Computed example of a mutant assay.
Amino acid sequence: MCGSSEVESRSLKLPKPWYLRSIHNGKSPCGQGGQSCWLDRLLDESCKAIFVDTDLLPARDSKMGDLVQNETEASLVFQLTEALLHSGIQEEQIGVISLYRQQIKLLSHLLAKRKGIEILTADKSQGRDKECVIISLVRSNDAGQVSPAPFMYSS
Rank of each mutant, 00 (worst) to 15 (best):
residue 136 S to G: 04
residue 28 S to L: 11
residue 59 A to F: 02
residue 60 R to S: 11
residue 110 L to G: 03
residue 99 L to V: 05
residue 84 L to V: 09
residue 39 L to F: 09
residue 135 I to T: 10
residue 151 F to W: 06
residue 102 Q to Y: 01
residue 78 F to W: 12
residue 64 M to D: 13
residue 130 K to T: 01
residue 147 S to Q: 08
residue 85 L to Q: 06
residue 77 V to I: 15
residue 46 S to V: 07
residue 147 S to K: 03
residue 50 I to M: 15
residue 98 S to D: 01
residue 17 P to K: 10
residue 2 C to I: 03
residue 20 L to E: 05
residue 143 A to L: 11
residue 145 Q to G: 08
residue 102 Q to E: 14
residue 70 N to T: 10
residue 69 Q to M: 15
residue 39 L to S: 09
residue 63 K to H: 12
residue 152 M to A: 07
residue 56 L to V: 06
residue 33 G to V: 03
residue 114 R to N: 09
residue 67 L to Y: 15
residue 84 L to P: 08
residue 10 R to W: 11
residue 17 P to D: 13
residue 9 S to M: 08
residue 67 L to V: 12
residue 149 A to K: 06
residue 92 E to R: 15
residue 27 K to A: 07
residue 66 D to T: 12
residue 42 L to S: 04
residue 116 G to V: 06
residue 15 P to D: 02
residue 153 Y to P: 05
residue 37 C to W: 05
residue 10 R to I: 00
residue 81 T to G: 12
residue 57 L to E: 15
residue 101 R to L: 13
residue 137 L to G: 11
residue 130 K to G: 00
residue 140 S to F: 06
residue 12 L to G: 02
residue 43 L to M: 05
residue 8 E to A: 04
residue 19 Y to R: 02
residue 109 H to F: 07
residue 40 D to A: 13
residue 73 E to C: 14
residue 111 L to W: 02
